[in-house]
Design a protein around this nucleic acid. Structure first.
Lengths: 328, 328
DNA sequence: CTGAAAGCGCTTACAG
DNA sequence: CTGAAAGCGCTTACAG
């Protein structure tokens, strides 16, 4: 049988309110404290969360909305969020939207109905409907991976990372560059990474030939897109907007019997674990997803406590110089 | 301002109990139904979950305990569970234990305290402490990935899958086999897969030379283990207990300048997405993780409704014949 | 420091 | 079919 606060009060010979005060750090004399403590230990009493939340009208749950569960980046961010939250005695509730923007909006409202204390959104696109939802629910929201003026954001600093990667490949002598990117609807991945590369090329004094292509996030689509690029454009390097796309490009090169990096260099973005183990291993930009997750978790708790939190947090990155880029 | 059932009752000119009955499918006349419906639509009323749960003493939440978030198998299973649960109007609450058995036990109790309706455990090892916890919490539990006599299980049929894979490589002519497995503590992955291979070899009339090795689940460890095996044993094939290990073996071969599959064949288990894109693509056994997740979700709901559910459900598998195995 | 009482928003017998 | 009342397990002013 589940014990209630009334049982504890009876057993300890005090009032329910006193037990409640003991539990919540109110003023209780040392003597009664000890009595209550004893009873609680003996009975293994655990307060009913529903009753608590019903009164307090809030929970220590942070809702985390993710577009998909099966992506390296998502997993790592979630791990970071979960770890930090657990540390701070909060709980993470994951809501998977399966890449549906509609379900994303639904999730935001539904989490709010469940009285989560705050929401962390692993964002892809931020629409007006999102902003409207954020305003309506009236609890702290932090975006991870995308930036928006009216919401707190933790981003991966895609532009700088891309700029640095661009400088790197230029230094390696590449002048005939294919950039295989994704939709502009994704500001971070589609726009910022491309912009960083473009800025690096602009800074370069020598002339570069650059072609831009677009593909989806899916590996298989990347294989065929890359294959066509190799055939028609014959670049010395394919700069891919994600590691998955780079993996696809690598496959395309293998299929065509083109040696990487001797005949063709390839780079990615992300730093997925598997990029270390491919042959050749992939030169890429590593983002610190887990740390970004921690940052977001920290931020939401600060916001909850009414403390200061910067509107935009830049997460770290690191160029991983490996085998897939050769001197030209 | 949040509306309560009392507000709705007032606005509709009926009693709270009538609104409650309307909400829960009790008997309400068509006329009052319409009145209530109207008010609810206008106000956008949503019942307070805590109040509901406080009375009903249960939730429509299913707790899912996972050892790690960043594994292909886990992600797919979670996606399956989530999808099915959502369909049935249940919710999934994920608890990540970060591969800690202690945290696994803690999670079980903590989910139970939160009054989840049931628990799905993506299991690695089942200890007595687990069984004790399952008995104490007194709600339905389903294991995914491991089997145990006293708990409902959805398993991947590792033994049969391994047997079939064993038959396949034998038919390809391999007689000098290295099996790179994992700890026996993991019954499904460590024991069953090995047993399946052994059974296939026993069935074979010709003489086989087989060596068994053990490694961790980590890719990098697999690289060095495989490298040593290649050097010392010189097998014609390395059968790896997981795709990650196989990826490591592939890397080891590349590093040593050994051509796969011409000089060395390699197989995995799992059917991770990335195995299709490696060079050469990996011959492996694909498990239907997502479907297994669905099965588990279905099962837990059946159990909740008091319906029949088989103590052990065998999930499907499929040999993915690709490029990493050659005729010998 | 301590207790009695009211109330959070719902559901569920029980009458009618 | 419908309503009044009790109660789920807690917390929070309010007295003392």
């Amino acid at each position: 049988m589940m014990k209630t606060i009334a049982d504890i009060a009876n057993l300890a010979g005090v009032a329910k309110s006193t037990v409640s005060r003991y539990l919540n750090g109110g003023s209780v004399s040392e003597a009664t404290k000890r009595k209550i403590e004893l009873v609680i230990n003996e009975t293994g009493y655990v307060p009913n969360t529903f009753a608590q939340s019903l009164k307090a009208k809030k929970t220590n749950i942070i809702g985390t909305v993710v577009p998909r569960l099966d992506s390296f980046a998502s997993s790592q961010i979630l791990i970071g969020v979960d770890e930090k939250l657990r540390e701070m005695n909060y709980q993470m509730l994951i809501s998977n939207t399966n890449q549906s923007l509609t379900r994303e909006i639904e999730s935001i409202y539904s989490l709010s109905n469940q009285k989560v204390a705050g929401i962390i959104l692993l964002a892809t696109q931020i629409t007006d409907t999102h902003i409207e939802a954020f305003e309506k629910i009236n609890i702290p929201v932090i975006l991870v991976g995308q930036q928006h003026d009216s919401v707190y954001s933790v981003i991966h600093n895609d532009e700088s990372a891309a700029y640095e990667l661009g400088k790197y490949i230029l230094k390696k002598g590449h002048r005939k560059i294919a950039y295989l990117g994704v939709t502009n609807k994704d500001i971070a991945v589609g726009v910022k990474r491309k912009e960083g590369i473009i800025r690096a090329i602009k800074d370069e004094e020598e002339l570069c030939e650059v072609n831009f292509y677009e593909t989806g996030f899916d590996m298989n689509e990347a294989v065929s897109k890359a294959s066509t690029i190799i055939e028609r454009f014959k670049p010395s390097i394919i700069v891919c907007a994600t590691d998955n796309i780079a993996l696809g490009a690598l496959k395309a090169a293998h299929q065509r019997g083109i040696r990487v990096p001797e005949e063709l260099s390839i780079t990615g973005f992300g730093g997925y674990e598997v990029t270390e183990i491919t042959h050749p291993s992939l030169t890429t930009v590593k983002f610190f997803y887990k740390e970004a997750g921690c940052d977001a978790a920290n931020g939401i708790i600060k916001l909850l406590k009414g403390e200061e939190f910067s509107p935009v947090t830049l997460s770290k990155y690191q160029i991983m110089e490996r085998e897939s880029v050769d001197k030209k």
